[in-house]
Design a protein around this nucleic acid. Structure first.
Lengths: 145, 145
DNA sequence: TTAATCCATATAACTCTAATAGGAATTGAA
DNA sequence: TTCAATTCCTATTAGAGTTATATGGATTAA
């Protein structure tokens, strides 16, 4: 399950990608329809995840860091929610051994979940913000949801 | 994320599939290395999900309902954890509209997550308990994890 | 009658989620 | 210098979900 936080993060980044310019968090919150104060925390996390840069003070705001086609959904989801894999022992970036497993090389649950994690990764690490924008039939009106 | 409950459920079913006979929950708990009392509740859910049948009283126990090749992982995971999709609006079996979305037909987040949900479904609805057993290189010794 | 077993309900500790609140620090402009 | 806009930081909170454990009732075979 994607958390609301992660979904909001994606929406915020789509807005930034579509506008292609610096935006204050209040503007992002309004365009993405996301609780403003919650979004502030999310934007901080996105900055730490190197997805955007922020400028403080009057006329400050947030700017996408790098081109929209370089920012992949997998990166964002991992930064917000952690691993893509259904269980820790099947994760590449957030691997953790199971307590109830003696030999993970033969674990059939893990084998199955590795397949799942690879499919999820194929999709999310293969989709960029730019790809998301291009999915929208109403791109020009900037209606994405 | 798969819950422990779901993981335990899968392990219990693998044990039942491997043994191919009626087993009391205590035996399943021991072979699957799952907390006994927690497992009892899980077995009840699996019965409600039509994955096994139970007999009460002395010499009672739980038996897989139907052939192992007919019980799919997707069915089990849905019964334990709910939807496979990352977000409710992308779920087939547990669909629910998003509050922050005006037109889901154009929602780019949903489109991306539909791809993910379909891939997950392809794997989990394509894998049976029998497939899991066959994944194990130590099938004869009944070591699955 | 007894022991084994499933079944049902309650509870508890813990963590996670989805926020909200309040204010400090920074910046550009009047 | 002062003001307003803005990010940034820390704390708090209500509610839900997770992962169990405890107790005892109901059922069944020997």
């Amino acid at each position: 399950m994607l958390s609301m936080k992660c979904k909001y993060a994606l929406k915020a980044l789509v807005v930034l990608a579509a506008e292609g310019k610096k935006l204050p968090s209040s503007a992002i919150a309004q365009k993405a329809r996301v609780p403003a104060k919650f979004l502030e925390a999310i934007l901080t996390d996105l900055r730490k995840a190197d997805a955007l840069t922020s400028e403080r003070g009057a006329h400050g705001g947030h700017t996408l860091k790098g081109a929209p086609e370089k920012i992949m959904l997998g990166h964002v989801v991992r930064a917000m929610d952690g691993m893509l894999a259904p269980i820790p022992c099947a994760s590449t970036f957030y691997y953790k051994k199971c307590d109830d497993c003696t030999d993970e090389k033969i674990c059939v649950i893990r084998h199955a979940m590795l397949e799942v994690r690879n499919k999820i990764s194929e999709v999310l690490d293969g989709l960029s913000l730019e790809d998301l924008l291009n999915m929208s039939p109403k791109k020009k009106q900037q209606l994405f949801w």
